[in-house]
C-alpha cells in the first residue's frame, strides 16, 4: 500500500506518462530553484512538441534551455527570455512560438489555475501588446484586462525538503514560482534535496501541502549560479 507515500525511485518513473504535445508548467526563477534533473529527464526522453510555461527558458546551456537543443519545445510562455541565445534564434526563425506574459500575471495564472479560478482581471498590460485580443472591463474608473488561468498536464517543481507525503518546504528565493506550479499540474512531480518521514516537518513550516503533489523524488543538484556577484 502506497497510501500517501509519493516517493518514486527513478527519474524515469517520475516523468512516466509525459507524451508529445503536452503542456508542462515549471517552477524556477532563472536557474534558481529550477527542477534541473526533471528537465534532464525530459531531454533524455526526447518528448517533442511541448508547451512550456515558466518564468524563463533557462540559459543557453542549463535548465529549460537544454530542451531547445533538440527543439523539444513548440511553444514557450514566459516573462523574460533574455538569457538564452538559442531561444532568440528559434523564435526569430519561427520554429518556436512565444507568448510573452508579465511576470505577476504569469504567477497569478498559475495560482488561479491551481485554485479553480478560470480567469481574472488585472490592470497589468492594459494598453500594451499584451492586451491584444483580450476583454477589457472598467472597475472604479480604471481599465483591466481579462487573463486566463493556466494548468499543465505536468507540473515540475524543485523544493528543498519534503516528507514522504509530499509536504514541501522551499528555501529562500528558490521558492519563486515553485509553489504555484505545484498547484497547477494534473500530475505534479517534485524533486527535493532531502526526504524525511511524515511528522518530522513542523506542520506550520510547510509551504505546499502534499495534496498537490503526485510524485516525489530525491535528487542531487548542480545549482548553477547565473550572476555570481560578491562584495570584497
Amino acid at each position: 500500500m502506497a497510501g500517501f507515500n509519493k516517493v518514486v525511485d527513478s527519474y524515469e518513473a517520475a516523468m512516466a506518462g509525459l507524451e508529445d504535445n503536452m503542456t508542462i508548467i515549471a517552477g524556477g526563477f532563472g536557474l534558481s530553484g529550477n527542477p534541473e534533473n526533471l528537465i534532464k529527464e525530459i531531454k533524455r526522453k526526447g518528448t517533442k512538441g511541448l508547451t512550456v510555461i515558466s518564468n524563463n527558458c533557462g540559459t543557453t546551456e542549463h535548465g529549460l534551455g537544454i530542451l531547445l537543443f533538440d527543439k523539444q519545445i513548440k511553444k514557450m510562455v514566459a516573462s523574460y527570455v533574455g538569457e538564452n541565445a538559442n531561444f532568440e534564434t528559434q523564435m526569430m526563425s519561427g520554429e518556436l512560438e512565444v507568448e510573452l506574459t508579465p511576470q505577476g500575471t504569469l504567477a497569478e495564472k498559475m495560482r488561479a489555475g491551481g485554485a479553480g479560478i478560470p480567469a481574472f482581471f488585472t490592470a497589468t498590460g492594459y494598453g500594451t501588446p499584451v492586451a491584444e485580443g483580450k476583454e477589457v472591463r472598467e472597475f472604479n474608473g480604471r481599465n483591466y484586462i481579462l487573463e486566463e488561468a493556466v494548468t499543465g498536464d505536468f507540473a515540475i517543481v524543485k523544493a528543498w525538503k519534503a516528507d514522504t507525503f509530499g509536504n514541501l518546504v522551499f528555501r529562500k528565493t528558490a521558492r519563486n514560482f515553485n509553489p504555484l506550479a505545484a498547484t497547477a499540474g494534473k500530475i505534479t512531480v517534485v524533486e527535493v534535496e532531502e526526504i524525511v518521514e511524515p511528522g518530522e516537518l513542523d506542520p506550520d513550516e510547510i509551504h505546499t501541502p502534499g495534496i498537490y503533489v503526485n510524485r516525489l523524488i530525491k535528487g542531487t543538484f548542480e545549482k548553477i549560479i547565473e550572476q555570481r556577484t560578491v562584495r570584497s
Binding site: V81, M91, V98, Q103, G104, G125, Y126
Partner: peptide, 14 residues
C-alpha cells in the same frame, strides 16, 4: 531586441 517584460508591466501598473 526580444527579451520580455519580466515584472516591469506589473510594476508600472501597480
Amino acid at each position: 531586441l526580444i527579451k520580455g517584460m519580466g515584472g516591469a508591466m506589473d510594476l508600472v501598473a501597480g
